[in-house]
């Protein structure tokens, strides 16, 4: 995946995965990251538009951006510990 926001952020490609797998991948990736790290995620399951924001709210991480672009759903999450 090419950097959609900033090349210094961590990236996660969950294209073709169906919910809840994108959420599981985000959850597992964020376990490896530190406070303040940014994670950009690309998904193709439209369900992620609800699920990833919900997961961020529950786990108190900051969803800085979500957008839809050519059947892709893109998220930028800031890790909060």
């Amino acid at each position: 995946m090419t950097g959609i926001y900033n090349m210094s952020t961590h990236q996660l490609d969950t294209q073709r995965l169906l919910c809840p797998l994108p959420v599981i991948r985000v959850q597992d990736k964020i376990k490896e990251l530190n406070n303040g790290d940014l994670l950009e995620v690309v998904c193709t399951d439209p369900g992620t538009m609800n699920d990833i924001p919900a997961w961020c709210r529950i786990n108190e991480h900051l969803l800085k951006e979500k957008k839809e672009q050519n059947h892709q759903y893109l998220f930028l999450i800031e890790v909060v510990r």
């Binding site: 919910c19 809840p20 959420v23 439209p46 369900g47 538009m49 609800n50 699920d51 919900a54 997961w55 709210r57 529950i58």
Partner: peptide, 14 residues
């Protein structure tokens, strides 16, 4: 597409 696509487990947790 119009159907609710939320993940029920996440919704319950919330």
């Amino acid at each position: 597409k119009q159907k609710q696509k939320r993940n029920n487990a996440l919704w319950v947790a919330e």
